[in-house]
Simulated assay, not measured.
Amino acid sequence: MEIVCERLEDLKDHCVPHAPGALLKAVCVCSGLVTYPSRQSLEEQLLQRWGGGVEIHTWSLLPHGSGLGTSSILAGAVLAAVYRCTGRTYDTDSLIHAVLHLEQMLTTGGGWQDQVGGLVGGVKVARSKACLPLRVEVERLTLSEDFLLSLQQHLLLVYTGKTRLARNLLQDTVRRWYSRVPSIVENAGQLVDNAEECALACTEGSLPRLGACLERYWGQKKVMAPGCEPAAVRIMMDALRPLALGQTLAGAGGGGFLYLLTRQPQQGEVVRQVLNNIQGLRDFSVHLVELDMDGISLLKSS
């Protein structure tokens, strides 16, 4: 799809999530590439500030509604590219907060977990204190090479063939939180505790302990967002349970990708065979995992 914005009015729908190019339009406004609304025309702004227009190309090989935080990670990458090409400096911390701002502007909600996961390298735990302005603090965990290798050999991504959008799930969850539903408030505290337990499991190099955290996390997600486990996904997870130390759906649940920590290493083909034997299950795929230890990097093309 090609979208050309020649008038400032063409950016009007930058806050409408399903509008064509909404994410990129929001990047243009959020990054300060252009100001909207403004008495200055789009042409005047671009010529005065940057000496001309900007052309942005983006692509993703992931299906929409994958649960892997694609929009947040893509937003971070595009913001970084726009900052670079307009001669401005940034760091990863500023990108994390810029994406948080962008997603509020885009009205998709969301938080900071996806861009932390995609923009910061290695295995990490991220925290934010209950205060404004919100500050996200990211701690990269120091893990042994043996554990990192073992993690890659035991961790698989399974595409369920079911996609979902998190927006409605998030809205319902936030409403229940604001209503101070006791089970939701208690569960939120347990989510935090489980994240810290997960970090300890990684630091100690314990795959069984990490698997238990994944299982606990999936139970907590189902409390937070009832209905996030489609029947087809439940059948898949039940069939894979004998092979798994732990498993959970990525993102807010409802479909997308399942991540699976297997009892034995290199179980990709075994997982495919199990899923092939489930009647009526189609469009699934199994993927190996490689940990990104570097985080976001920009390359200048010739």
Rank of each mutant, 00 (worst) to 15 (best):
E269A: 13
E204A: 00
V116L: 08
D114C: 13
Q247P: 11
A22T: 12
K162L: 11
V116M: 10
L275R: 05
A126F: 00
S302W: 11
L157N: 06
S60W: 00
K129C: 11
D13V: 09
M1R: 07
S301F: 06
P230R: 15
S183R: 11
A199P: 15
Q152E: 15
Q247N: 02
C85E: 14
L23D: 08
I296P: 02
L261A: 03
Y83A: 14
L33N: 06
W218H: 14
L165W: 07
E9H: 04
E145V: 10
G52I: 12
P265A: 10
R282F: 08
V271G: 01
C28E: 05
N277D: 13
R209Y: 03
R234S: 15
L157P: 07
P133Y: 12
R140H: 07
N187Y: 06
C85S: 13
Q247I: 05
C131A: 15
M105N: 02
L210E: 02
W177S: 03
R241W: 03
L24S: 09
L169Y: 03
D294L: 14
M224R: 02
A75W: 02
L46E: 05
K300G: 08
G21C: 09
V27F: 05
G65M: 04
W177G: 01
R282E: 14
W218E: 15
R263V: 01
R241Y: 02
L119D: 02
I96H: 03
P242W: 02
G21P: 10
L240G: 07
M293V: 05
T203H: 09
E290W: 01
R176H: 10
C15Q: 13
T203G: 03
N187H: 08
K162Y: 12
H287K: 04
T142E: 15
L298V: 08
V174H: 04
P242R: 01
L298E: 05
S94L: 02
Q115I: 12
S285H: 10
F284S: 05
T262K: 03
H64T: 07
D238V: 09
W59H: 14
C228A: 13
G256R: 04
C228W: 00
T70F: 11
S144F: 05
P63T: 10
L155A: 10
L143T: 06
V123I: 13
Y90Q: 12
P37C: 07
A225K: 00
R180C: 15
L134P: 04
K162D: 01
I96R: 05
G161L: 01
G117F: 11
T86D: 11
E2F: 10
D294I: 00
A77P: 06
W59I: 04
S72Q: 05
D193M: 13
V185K: 03
G118F: 15
S302T: 00
V54R: 07
I235M: 02
L298H: 09
L119A: 08
E204G: 00
W218M: 11
G268H: 03
E196M: 07
E196F: 13
N277I: 00
L151T: 02
L170F: 06
S38Y: 01
R241G: 04
T107F: 06
L243S: 06
H64A: 09
R272M: 09
A201T: 08
S66P: 15
L299F: 09
E44F: 08
E2M: 06
V158I: 13
L298G: 14
A212N: 05
R175Y: 07
A98I: 00
T262A: 02
S144C: 08
L61I: 09
L191H: 07
L240Y: 01
R7D: 11
H18K: 08
